[in-house]
């Protein structure tokens, strides 16, 4: 494997809903109330190679956005380490931490909420480069025009406000804002989910062009397997805060190992399987407030045994470059 860009080691994030005064009183008086804690991300380890494109897939609520936000430095992890270019984010001095924060940028899902509605495009894109000394305040127009051209926006529009653009154009503004601080690693959190299908293709192509031109590394968070198949080298499948399978894209789509992956892949509509009956994954995703024991997937798994209810399966290498967390792999 080539040079490692980012390594995530046993990363965990809990969200705790603290009891208020009334709740604590009720608890003292014997009511059956306790602090509610959600393991949004539960001991995730992951390695992302330089210039790689990793697709992170899972149902909504499985913690993929939380993982992305921790990597982008927006949310602090509860425990675990994020190692960027060989140094843990927590061990960095101020200058290194700032550089790492700028080199890891995030593209957000909702292009309507992710742009400050009261700033003009030139300020949205140009604020951070000026603040961090990438360009002089007097050269902001030229700098922003260059970045806008790179993402396919007409620099003539730089004096406009975000609400004067369409969804696809806004997403391009969001991308331009991230590119303006010369990042090396982009976390795309459902970056195309809110766009029309025709625009999705344009934005995906833009991501791929940028990867060629700027040697970017991507963590591409999505629930859309067909998009992930199209762009990523490696796919990570998450279920209820845990990674269940990691594999190179082609191998994963050819021969999925984990029952959850198999169920997900069955849901992707394909031209060559037209007319096939559609078998959705049975049941709902369980509440992360009260996750199932053992393997989180066992209540919905067609192959579940008593062992799956009791014991949490560990991620184990099943083939070179492929890991999966399923007890079924032990038997055969």
């Amino acid at each position: 494997m080539s040079e490692v860009m980012l390594e995530v080691d046993n990363l965990t994030r809990n969200f705790v809903k603290k009891l208020d005064l009334a709740g604590r009183l009720a608890q003292k008086l014997g009511a059956d109330i306790r602090e509610e804690s959600v393991h949004a991300v539960d001991g995730v380890s992951l390695t992302i190679a330089k210039k790689g494109v990793v697709g992170l897939v899972g149902e909504s609520g499985c913690g993929k956005s939380t993982l992305g936000r921790m990597i982008a430095g927006i949310l602090p992890p509860t425990s675990g380490r994020i190692v960027y270019k060989g140094i843990s984010l927590t061990d960095m001095n101020f200058e290194e931490a700032k550089r790492a924060a700028l080199e890891i940028q995030m593209i957000f899902q909702d292009p309507f909420a992710s742009l400050n509605p009261r700033m003009r495009v030139v300020d949205i894109i140009g604020e951070a480069p000026v603040a961090h000394g990438f360009c002089k305040p007097s050269e902001i127009n030229k700098y922003v025009s260059d970045v806008m051209q790179r993402v396919g926006l007409d620099p003539e529009y730089r004096r406009r406000y975000p609400h004067q653009f369409s969804g696809g154009q806004r997403q391009r503004i969001g991308i331009a804002r991230a590119l303006a601080v010369k990042p090396e690693f982009l976390v795309c959190d459902e970056a195309i989910a809110a766009l029309d299908v025709s625009i999705q293709a344009q934005v995906i192509n833009l991501f791929m062009d940028l990867r060629e031109d700027l040697d970017l590394t991507y963590l591409f968070i999505s629930h859309d397997l067909s998009v992930v198949e199209h762009i990523s080298d490696q796919v990570v499948i998450m279920y209820l805060g845990r990674i269940v399978e990691v594999a190179p894209t082609a191998e994963l789509f050819e021969k999925p190992n984990h029952p959850y992956t198999q169920a997900l892949l069955n849901e992707v509509p394909r031209v060559d399987q037209r007319g096939r009956d559609y078998q959705p994954v049975e049941g709902e995703i369980p509440s992360p407030l009260d996750p199932p024991s053992g393997c989180h997937f066992h209540p919905r798994c067609p192959h579940a045994t008593s062992r799956c209810k009791a014991e949490r399966p560990v991620l184990r290498e099943i083939a070179p470059g492929r890991i999966s967390a399923c007890h079924l792999n032990d038997g055969t």
Binding site: G73, I74, Q105, F108, E127, A128, A131, H132
Partner: peptide
């Protein structure tokens, strides 16, 4: 809690 504030903190603004 809007994303543009998250984006601003992601850009390491003060």
């Amino acid at each position: 809690n809007k994303e543009y504030i998250e984006a601003a903190s992601c850009l390491a603004l003060s």
